[in-house]
Amino acid sequence: MKHVARSTLAALLLTPVLATGALAGSEDVVVENAWSRASIGTSRPCAAFMEVRNAGDEAVTLTGLRSDLAMMSEIHRVTTDARGVSTMAPAGAIVIAPEETVAVAPGVMHVMLMHLRRPMQEGESFPLTLTFSDGGKVTVAAPVLGIAARGPEG
């Protein structure tokens, strides 16, 4: 328990994450390396990426997320079949086992930000709130990188 408390504290100090409420599970979630690509205007959907780590000792379920920037946000999973055809579909609820990290990474999963209220410009940063089945929320600041960015380092 001491280890968990310490890792949560470290996460709160090192990353711009704010967990709310005294809830079991989601309070031990750490979101790291969040980033998104800049958008082209507002009509095209945009994608954000991150790593969601469960630093606690109970499984947590990520049920959804929201951002003031987009009217609709959901996590999509990308699958590529044997013929090389890529498809994306809502990932649904994502269960994260204790000590497990879910990588929302290009080509695997992305946070699809749809119906943008304003363009996402390179250099800015926006808050993204993840919601969990226990009612907990974790908000992370996602920096907006260039359209051709391949990872959190650009």
Binding site: A47, L113, A148
Partner: peptide, 17 residues
């Protein structure tokens, strides 16, 4: 397609690399 949020920009970025 240009409305593609993940696979296409990733492919284009990979090719650029």
């Amino acid at each position: 397609f240009t409305f593609c949020p993940d696979v296409c920009p990733t492919t284009l970025a990979d090719i650029s690399g």
